[in-house]
Design a protein around this nucleic acid. Structure first.
Length: 632
DNA sequence: TACTCACAG
DNA sequence: GGCTGTGAGTA
């Protein structure tokens, strides 16, 4: 007889409950050296080519071919190139300061003999968009195959493949090719189909024929236990085939090699996928999980979420050994309650100098988690992908890359372009409208002090635009500048960091009504405006509409955009001359109207066009204007 | 809203 | 070890 019950098996039918069954089958898939693979594939290299992905002077991802030369992350590109002249360094895509699109500059990087082609970090910002894009393609394949996929990071996914395994087991007429299913299986399949089982009944023993089922990949089995004893093993064997098929599909359609771990819990899956790389899969059967966790490579700090100071503190406070902590915890605290008591007492009695982060009110929760983790039994649900909750675009700087308000604006332009582009891509992916409600600007001053300012974000149209973000960001930056830079320039500029983020992302179904999208208040405003204007079909009524060729400063509309441009030039020239001639207070900043004019004259191309390399630069783009500021 | 901390690849 | 990010907590 099996040690599992019918309800353990049927629980697998439900995506929301399967993870909690003792028969659960999860897997974790990790794209090997992801950034390096993206660049290698993009540039047409094979896995034999020693490609590394470079960011400034650092190596952020190393292909396996390059690892053979002893190249790893942590070392600089200069050091790596000394190790082999075969190295193929590829820099990430970048935004240029003052531009709102990213592009690749293949061949450019710190190694380029031409000093103009070295991508100084003072003038550029890293773009991770290409990796997010590839990540979405990969994730799409997972979701097509599997009814429950959780995106764990840009290059990692958790899958609950229980339904796929269950379907193999309970719907297949030939579990072993060419052989009729044993009678036990036929009976089980009939019961399962009719739902004529009693959930509390134990399952039958696994019939001998099924113990021949092959595993695809590496079963962790140092003690040479029988591969298939109970139904969990059968499901893992079937799962290993499914995982291989999935990974083959990724390889064939997109070209990426992956590593995969199969196990009953997310934590063990993650350790397993990391166990053998690249292009491998490791299966941790339930009967081998303790041996796996004790194999000498893992400690409690290896578990996800325990990698930081919480893990260290647990070791200290529970007096765990530096090595073999998993087995130690298992053996010394054989019951949940004993570990709860020990941890709670240890926290209570610990001197106030140590243990700063274990909250006394959470000791039971943490103890239970640890108890389960060291047994490979910490069951956490696989949650379907949730939309991001915030997005940030960030730039760290050394030197003079941001030494005034004008520089801030140039970086804001980058941030606004990046964030608007990312929102658009997300909208396309989900076929939803995404409306950020809050915008946040944070700067780290020369002194090291951080200052931030945030506020509500309202956009002009139904879709977010980089101008809206730029406008809102510029306002916040100007306020920070006014508050912290004026009269204190010595501690403020040059900034060592500046970033823009958006949050409170409202997600709206595209098919929903204007009321759903903009709220009742806005909808009332919209109707009012509609009534005034007449037959206005636009849905972008929530806020002040974007008035074509309208000058805020003069409260005046111009006939043509050309006339408007000339008028805008007049304002900017005025502001510049005041600034450069010193006729005005040197610290005079552009008025908000002037800034707005500046922004408007740079209406970007549609996002689809902006991704490609622009052939010629529009005369009078903001970077051209801002270069005058730098001379002051 | 402003700011800090923890954690991860 | 620097860079890029996400999320939670606090006042």
């Amino acid at each position: 007889m099996s040690k599992y019950k019918w309800k353990d098996l049927t629980k697998l039918k439900s995506p929301s409950m399967a993870y909690d069954s003792p028969l659960s089958v999860l897997c974790h898939i990790d794209v090997n050296c992801f950034y390096a693979q993206v660049e290698a594939i993009r540039c047409g290299y094979t896995k034999e080519d020693p490609v590394v992905c470079v960011q400034w002077n650092s190596i952020v991802a190393v292909s396996y071919a390059a690892r053979k030369y002893g190249i790893s992350r942590m070392i600089t590109i200069q050091e790596a190139m000394k190790k082999t002249d075969k190295l193929i360094p590829i820099h990430t895509a970048v935004f240029k300061k003052g531009e709102d699109f990213w592009q690749y500059h293949d061949g450019w990087g710190p190694w380029n003999p031409d000093k103009d082609k070295r991508l100084p970090s003072s003038d550029y910002k890293i773009s991770l968009d290409p990796y997010r894009r590839e990540s979405r393609k990969i994730f799409k394949i997972f979701t097509e195959y599997c009814d429950l996929a959780e995106k764990a990071s840009v290059d990692e996914v958790f899958l609950d493949i229980a339904r796929l395994c269950l379907q193999s087991l309970m719907c297949s007429e030939q579990l072993i090719p060419g052989k009729e299913n044993p009678e036990t299986i036929q009976l089980m399949q009939a019961k399962f189909k009719d739902e004529s089982y009693d959930g509390n009944q134990f399952l039958p023993a696994v019939p001998g024929e099924l113990k021949e089922l092959p595993f695809i990949g590496d079963v962790y089995n140092p003690e040479d236990l029988p591969l298939i004893e109970d139904w969990d093993d059968v499901l893992f064997a079937l799962g290993s085939r499914i995982a291989q098929e999935l990974r083959d599909e990724i390889k064939q359609t997109l070209g990426y090699t992956t590593s995969c771990g199969l196990a009953s819990t997310k934590n063990v899956c993650k350790l397993a996928s990391n166990f053998k790389k690249p292009d491998a899969q490791t299966i941790i059967k339930n009967s081998c999980v303790n041996t796996f966790l004790d194999n000498g490579k893992f400690e409690i700090t290896t578990f996800w979420s325990l990698g930081g100071i919480l893990g260290k503190e647990l070791i200290q406070i529970l007096k765990l050994p530096q090595q073999g902590s998993n087995g130690y915890v298992r053996e010394n605290w054989p019951t949940r309650d004993s570990l709860r008591k020990s941890l709670s007492r240890a926290v209570r009695e610990s001197p106030s100098t140590s243990s700063t982060i274990i909250d006394a009110s959470r000791t039971n929760e943490i103890a239970d988690k640890l108890y389960d983790l060291v047994r490979g039994q910490y069951r956490v649900a696989v949650t379907p992908q949730t939309i991001v909750k915030s997005m940030m675009s960030n730039k760290n700087m050394t030197g003079q890359a941001c030494s005034g308000l004008a520089d801030c604006f140039s970086w804001l332009e980058v941030f606004a372009g990046e964030l608007a582009g990312r929102v658009h891509e997300l909208e396309q992916e989900y076929d939803k409208i995404i409306r950020p409600r809050t915008i946040h600007i944070l700067v780290r001053a020369k002194s090291g002090d951080t200052h931030s300012k945030s506020g509500p974000f309202v956009q002009n149209g139904a879709k977010i635009s980089s101008q809206d973000l730029l406008k809102a960001g510029a306002k916040l930056v100007a306020e920070l500048d006014a508050k912290f830079a004026r009269g204190k320039e010595h501690s403020f500029y040059p900034l060592i960091n500046i970033n823009m983020s958006i949050s409170n992302l409202d997600v709206v179904d595209c098919r929903k009504s204007v009321i759903d999208m903009f709220g009742n208040q806005a909808s009332v405003q919209g109707r009012q405006r509609k009534a005034n204007v007449g037959n206005n079909q636009s849905a972008s009524l929530a806020n002040e509409p974007f008035k074509e060729n309208w000058c805020d400063e003069c409260n005046k509309t111009f006939e043509t955009s050309r006339e408007f441009q000339e008028h805008a030039d007049y304002h900017i020239a005025l502001a510049l001359s005041e600034k450069m001639n010193g006729t005005n207070d040197c610290s005079r900043r552009l008025t908000f109207g002037e800034k707005r004019l500046l922004m408007r004259r740079n209406a970007p191309e549609p996002p689809s066009k902006r991704r490609s390399k622009p052939k010629s630069k529009t005369a009078g783009s903001s970077s051209d204007i801002f270069k005058y500021f730098k001379k002051e």
